[in-house]
């Protein structure tokens, strides 16, 4: 319960710091597997889902996504 509350607190908003944190924490293969599930579980073909989830996760975890907090100002 206490653990859950801690999680809730840290998940309420997408601050610049949190976006940065998300970028740091998000592993490419885990994200790929998440997208793959989202697509296949909703009826997309495996081959297509594999291609898209790979492409998206690669783009979303490109090296330059992890930006120093001072630099991230948008």
């Amino acid at each position: 319960m206490e653990n859950d509350n801690k999680k809730i607190q840290s998940y309420t908003l997408f601050s610049k710091e949190e976006i940065n944190q998300l970028n740091k924490e998000c592993e490419r293969n885990e994200l790929e597997s998440f997208f793959y599930d989202c697509l296949t579980l909703n009826g997309k073909e495996k081959e297509y889902s594999q291609k898209m989830s790979k492409e998206w996760s690669e783009k979303m975890t490109a090296e330059d996504k992890i930006i120093n907090e001072v630099e991230k100002s948008f």
Binding site: K7, F14, I19, L22, C26, E30, F34, W56, F74
Partner: peptide, 21 residues
């Protein structure tokens, strides 16, 4: 790019994180 970086990507990543929890 700003929309992608500030909305689309964090949205997807957060959804994944909540799903993991």
């Amino acid at each position: 790019i700003i929309f992608r970086d500030n909305y689309i990507e964090p949205f997807c990543k957060k959804m994944k994180k909540i799903s993991d929890e």
